[in-house]
Design a protein around this nucleic acid. Structure first.
Length: 423
RNA sequence: GGAAAGGUGGGUGAGUGGCUGAAACCAACAGUUUGCUAAACUGUCGUACGGGAAACCGUACCGGGGGUUCGAAUCCCCCCCUUUCCGCCA
């Protein structure tokens, strides 16, 4: 969430930025500042009364010790008065703090200056593209047919075991999954990311830390008996490793990677969006995460974008990079680049990575800070990106690299697969 | 799941009602000494919020919440977590 002092001192800039999201937050922000003003006033008053009570308690103690019981009793009258009024002020203060917090949960991150105003996905800017994607679309089978033809993935079996959206990978299909995971992890490691294997279930505090709670509660599977959530992305456990942590400036940037399955309820999705591998309840993903110095975070974002770009080039897939407009950007993000691969048979773009800088928005909830040279603590910037999400990559690989003799495995992947062709 | 012990600052750990925001040690940082390293010595060394231009001052925080008291890390109640033993088990 946004920091109140930031809003207080940069009100105009914040509102101008928020306007790019095609929604008006002015009222909420002003409300926050109003509550903040009240809050500070009450705290000031409360602190004064508590200070007096502390003084009195000391005096009473001293008087007791020197046997002046009557004088002590006299002072006690005042303390009981104070006790009542401080109690009342405390209730007010807590209510204001809670109100402020609830209001802050409603306000998304302020978009970066490079983000344009836009109503939705149609207005995203294409900042990179590999060229004419429609040149290679004749006689292509959709990946779900290829999966059946070459016995790679059994969607029906998945329905039997769990339900729609839980595919069963078989034979070379399963091997391809494992190859992609290893390939992505190796590439991340080569780029300086330390590999982690985090838990796949997380507690409520972690959900709040990265912003899935309270906004997107319905997207996560919740294990009621133990009050745990299945992770929708490795971002959640990986970023939360640094919840409530005070770092040293020289530790930055911290670069993490991890493979995890991801679980998403995807309630309300239907039609061609959920066909085959397009949208699943469980899928595999390798994530990269960075905790960065605020003055360097946009350089690191560029670096992450370049990393993902490299992966897609190595997989020999047609793709494009979008800079999301304000209306399409996620709640917690300040700047997001989406990567979309072109699916040759479906002839549509499939999102395979979303790489974002959250600036201090997550760090504020996480309380992940570092101490600068001046000895003052400040919030880190958090960034993350998929590198990459598997299912749509698999869909694109199958559809784009198919020919009459089967499916060609890109060179980079052959050592990981142990075969050059699926047929 | 049953039983017991315990949760204090970056770490170890003292602290059973006021002199404790918290001893001591370690780590860290700055300085002195030193041919270099090491050692030794001196000093600094929690976080958040509020007030202030600043120096600084105030308040809160010893797992979380509530209570007793003029006054709580310390006493009482509830909850959470961790560790150990037993049971179960990949």
């Amino acid at each position: 969430m946004l920091q109140v002092p930031y809003l207080r001192e940069n009100l105009e800039a914040a509102l101008t930025g928020l306007n790019k999201r095609n929604k008006d937050f002015a009222e909420t922000v002003h409300h926050i500042l109003l509550v903040d003003e009240k809050r500070r006033k009450i705290q000031n008053e409360l602190d004064g009364q508590l200070a007096e009570a502390n003084q009195l308690a000391k005096s009473i103690g001293d008087l007791f010790k020197s046997g002046k019981k009557e004088e002590a009793d006299e002072l006690k009258k005042r303390t009981s008065e104070l006790k009542e009024s401080t109690k009342e002020l405390e209730v007010q203060l807590l209510a204001l703090e809670e109100e402020q917090k609830q209001l802050l949960y409603l306000v998304p991150n302020v978009p970066h200056h490079s983000v344009v105003f836009g109503k939705g996905a149609d207005e995203n800017e294409i900042v990179y593209s590999t060229g004419d994607v429609h040149a290679n679309t004749t006689n292509k089978l959709p990946h779900w047919e290829l999966c059946e033809k070459y016995d790679l993935i059994d969607f029906e079996l998945g329905v039997k075991i769990a339900g729609a959206g839980f595919p069963v990978y078989k034979g070379k299909g399963a091997r391809l999954q494992r190859a992609l995971i290893n390939y992505f992890l190796d590439q991340a490691q080569a780029a300086g990311y330390q590999e982690f294997q985090p838990p796949h279930l997380v507690n409520e505090a972690s959900g709040y830390g990265t912003g899935q709670l309270p906004d997107k509660e319905g997207q996560m599977y919740h294990v009621g008996v133990d009050d745990l959530y299945l992770i929708p992305t490795a971002e959640v456990p990986l970023t939360n490793l640094f919840r409530d942590v005070m770092l040293k400036e020289e530790q930055l940037p911290i670069k993490l990677t991890g493979y995890t399955p991801c679980f998403r309820r995807e309630a309300g999705s239907y039609g061609k969006d959920v066909r085959g591998l397009n949208r699943l309840h469980q899928f595999d993903k390798v994530e990269i995460v960075q905790l960065a110095h605020p003055s360097k975070s946009y350089e690191h974002l560029e670096e992450m974008v370049a990393h993902v770009k490299g992966l897609l080039n190595q997989l020999e897939l047609p793709f494009r990079i979008l800079r999301l407009c304000g209306g399409d950007m996620g709640f917690t993000s300040a700047l997001t680049f989406d990567f979309e691969v072109f699916s040759a048979a479906q002839e549509r773009w499939l999102e395979v990575s979303s790489t974002s800088n959250f600036e201090t928005f997550q760090a504020n909830r996480l309380k992940c800070r570092f101490k600068g040279a001046d000895g003052k603590s400040q919030l880190v910037h958090t960034l993350n990106g998929s590198a990459l999400a598997l299912p749509r990559i698999v869909a694109a690989l199958l559809e784009n690299h198919q020919d009459e003799n089967g499916i060609r495995i890109p060179h980079a992947l052959v050592p990981y697969c142990g075969f050059e062709r699926i047929n």
